[in-house]
Amino acid sequence: MNRINQLFADKGDRRILSIYFTAGYPTLESTLDIAEALEKAGVDFLEIGFPYSDPVADGPVIQHSSEVALHNGMTLHVLFEQLKELRKRVSIPVLLMGYVNPVLQYGVENFCESCRAVGVDGVIVPDLPMYEFEEHYQSVFEANGLSNIFLVTPQTSEERIRKIDGLSTGFIYLLSSSATTGKNLSVSESTTAYFSRVRAVGLKNPTVIGFGISDHETFVRATEYAEGAIVGSAFVRLLGEADYREKIPQFIHQLRG
């Protein structure tokens, strides 16, 4: 059982909090310091983004962090070099999140092997289609003990949700709405109906809600419908501030309430 499955198996009543941040932002060397600070502040698992030049699913905040990270010299090779120290400093589950092209150029097999070697537990690649994954990559993910996380949106059909559930190992990433990252969550009737609809499907995997979670209120609302929630843009925005290091504990404390 990898760290992700363990986390959800042991969580009890705890509302799971995950934080996304972009590797190499705000500085090339900040990746592991931020990861360590987040664990100390009480975050349950991490999503470390590897930057891409054309992040179509991201809003302005994460786009900007990706541009800066690339400018700082972040690449997958650099990231895996940095992550060699990961498991000396961080014990919570860690996922890598990014777009498919850098993974293809690194080599999917090499990528999975590097993940395993440094202690990464799962991967989120939003533009890797289910068909491709099933056809070509599932076995190499499994051989390396990696969870592949799929997204579900309010427009995803029940049939497709079931299929995604069948292919998922770890959790399912529920998008609060069909949107790019960094929009605010407004929990309307249709949103709660969608969360309830997903819940009613009776999934084998836990669900985590992301996109639009930025503060305590949205975190609590989201975790009424799912095992956990993910904060991305709001945290990346904090990293843009000069004294972000000092502010991390308070930011996480306020999120949890």
């Binding site: 939003p126 533009d127 289609p129 068909y131 799929f150 949106t153 427009q155």
Partner: peptide, 20 residues
Amino acid sequence: DNGYYGNFGGAYIPEMLYPN
């Protein structure tokens, strides 16, 4: 039928675009 020309093509899109 799978949307490919040889090994090129496909639909590498995030789930948000899948229904469209």
